[in-house]
C-alpha cells in the first residue's frame, strides 16, 4: 500500500494540502486538506510503511494511546482509499 504517484503533500501558511501534478492533475483538479496527524501518516505511507509501523511511529511522536493511534491511522487510510489515492 502506497500513495499514488502524482500527488504531493505540501505545507502552505501552516496548513497541509494535497495537490495533483502531471496526468493526475487532468482528473483531479481539487485540493485536499490534511491535518497534522494525517500529514504524518501520509509521509509514512510515502516511505512505504505498513499500518502497524505507522501506529508505532504515532505513539512515539504524539501523546496518544494505542487505540486512538490505530483508529486515526485506519480512518486516514480509509479516507485515502475512498479518494483513490492509494495503489
Amino acid at each position: 500500500m502506497k500513495i499514488k504517484p502524482g500527488y504531493l503533500l505540501r505545507e502552505v501558511a501552516g496548513n497541509y494540502i494535497v495537490v495533483a501534478i502531471g496526468e493526475e492533475a487532468v482528473d483531479f483538479n481539487g485540493v485536499i486538506t490534511v491535518n497534522d496527524v494525517g500529514a504524518f501518516i501520509w509521509k509514512k505511507l510515502e516511505a512505504g510503511a505498513e499500518p502497524e509501523e505507522i501506529v508505532k511511529a504515532i505513539l512515539s511522536e504524539y501523546d496518544v494511546d494505542e487505540k486512538a493511534a490505530a483508529a486515526d491511522t485506519a480512518d486516514f487510510i480509509e479516507k485515502l482509499r475512498k479518494a483513490e489515492l492509494l495503489v
Binding site: L8, R10, V12, A13, G14, N15, I17, V19, I21, G22, A25, N29, G30, V31, T33
Partner: peptide
C-alpha cells in the same frame, strides 16, 4: 485565517502540471 481560503485561492490560479513549478507556486 489563510487556511480557510487555501482551497479557494488554489481554484483561482493557474496550476502548473510539473512538480518543480507546482512547488514554486505553493
Amino acid at each position: 485565517e489563510p487556511g480557510e481560503i487555501l482551497k479557494d485561492i488554489l481554484k483561482q490560479t493557474i496550476r502548473p502540471s510539473d512538480e518543480q513549478r507546482m512547488d514554486k507556486l505553493l
